[in-house]
């Protein structure tokens, strides 16, 4: 228990490894949070057999006072579907009721042929095998294949989901994809100053890019992939040198 408390008292990100135990209420570390009787556990934390809560993944321990939520932010390359996440999938098969999509998880995901904006039994979009779809995970369960949808169920509108035409897709780590979704991301802002492009980022690590010229697409793709382990200053010079070569 000592290792984690030391991390918490020191400033900077709190790094946890599998087996590190979350401090209990008696440690006084939760005083800033409203001592809600309920703790919500996010990814990377699991209750253990002996009633303690321990990390199961290596990453940075995060805490939100709202709802007393705790989670571990970790990075990996394999996607595990979770409800509500936006992802990019490739159609790999089609049956009467479902499209089968490769989303980079252990099993292919299912997308109902009617889960599109304004789709009816008579009138529904037809997607060929190999098409790229930007969709939302509507149901994810560890024992079943994930289910997807291409519209917002509350409004019935597409909300930007649907087929991604033209463009180029490449794979990144899940941690990088999460960072790219942040509108303040440095690498995308820097690239936007030099070349115009469209992008869609899936939480499953798939990134779609559409730009005017293939050369631009290659540049953007390389810059994004390179940026993962670079600092702000290194990132600036990396983008600069790539743009100069163009």
């Amino acid at each position: 228990m000592t290792s984690i408390t030391e991390d918490l008292s020191s400033s900077g990100p709190k790094i946890v490894l599998p087996g590190d135990i979350l401090p209990g209420p008696e440690s006084g570390l939760l005083d800033d949070a409203p001592t809600a009787p309920v703790i919500k556990l996010g990814p990377g934390l699991q209750p253990m057999d002996d009633d303690t809560i321990a990390a199961v993944k290596a990453g940075v321990l995060k805490h939100a006072a709202v709802g007393n939520r705790w989670w571990v932010e970790s990075n990996q390359r394999r996607y595990v579907a979770a409800t509500g996440e936006s992802i990019i999938g490739v159609v790999i098969g089609k049956s009467a009721d479902y499209y089968k999509l490769d989303i980079g998880a252990a099993q292919p995901a299912l997308l109902g042929v009617l889960s599109f904006e304004g789709a009816t039994k008579r009138n529904k979009p037809d997607h060929k095998v190999g098409a790229l779809l930007y969709c939302r995970v509507s149901m994810a369960n560890k024992d079943m294949e994930a289910e997807l949808e291409c519209f917002n169920p509350t409004t019935g509108k597409a909300d930007g989901y649907g087929e991604l035409k033209a463009g180029f897709v490449f794979k990144t780590s899940l941690g990088l994809a999460r960072r790219l979704l942040d509108p303040k991301t440095l690498v995308l802002r820097l690239l936007g100053q030099h070349v115009p492009f469209e992008t869609a980022v899936g939480m499953n690590g798939k990134v779609w890019i559409n730009s005017a010229k293939p050369a631009h697409t290659i540049l953007i793709c390389n810059a994004v992939k390179n940026s993962e382990f670079l600092g702000a200053e290194e990132c600036r010079s990396m983008v600069k040198s790539l743009v100069e070569k163009l």
């Binding site: 599998p18 087996g19 321990a54 993944k57 970790s74 990996q76």
Partner: peptide, 10 residues
Amino acid sequence: LDAGIPLKSI
């Protein structure tokens, strides 16, 4: 650890 497989301990 790098692959992010859930582990009880290291």
